[in-house]
Design a protein around this nucleic acid. Structure first.
Lengths: 104, 104
DNA sequence: TACATTAGGTTACTTTATGTAACCAATAGT
DNA sequence: ACTATTGGTTACATAAAGTAACCTAATGTA
């Protein structure tokens, strides 16, 4: 088992998450605290409900977020980062620093 | 001009680069030094020549990489990170740390 | 009673992005 | 003349994302 190849594989799998449209932004927004479906939707206006829903299902599957249903009516859904997700969010922070420095 | 919205926009634009299939891996591989077209291709076997070529054109356009043609025959093309690209690569490093910790 | 609203979706359909494999141009080696 | 090499390009197939209308359950309003 080649250590270098193993790392490359893991990095590759991680970029399959981060390198998927919308995921970076979703995690970035969730770093400011739990958000409801509609809050995520309005925070990223160009992200459609269809894609938001699909991405959240995938991120839940990856154990990056947790979906929490309240008893309110109409139903309210809160999405929050897991520890894994929070640490991924932390790992994305330098990207936002880079963005501020380099994007005109 | 809302400062928060401005940052969100810049982060959004950055995730349009990083959150595009293959770009993270390409930049990650280039962090170990300049690479020829064929070296990038063999470092990331599942990335086709077509997509590699397309991504490199885009990254050059974004001024993340520079394309350097040597006088050798057959022609050799070297891709290297610009300062902007190198700093983006640095910003991606925590992601590889996260990968090692969290990907099984 | 009937109708509208709200949250969080889902469905059907269109458009765009990516994958696959064959092909090409220039040069060098046999 | 034939073959290999590098860094592509082309045509075509499949997968992913965008769009807009619709749905469900409950509650509020006329």
């Amino acid at each position: 088992m080649d250590e270098v190849d193993d790392i490359l594989l893991k990095v590759h799998k991680t970029f399959d998450i981060v390198g998927k449209k919308w995921n970076g932004m979703i995690i970035y927004v969730l770093m400011s605290g739990p958000k409801r479906f509609s809050e995520l939707h309005s925070s990223i206006p160009s992200l459609s409900k269809r894609m938001l829903n699909e991405r959240m299902k995938e991120l839940e599957e990856e154990e990056v977020v947790v979906r929490h249903v309240t008893n309110d009516r109409p139903v309210r859904i809160e999405y929050l980062l897991t520890k894994k997700g929070y640490e991924l969010g932390m790992a994305l922070e330098p990207i936002s620093k880079w963005a501020i420095k380099w994007i005109k």
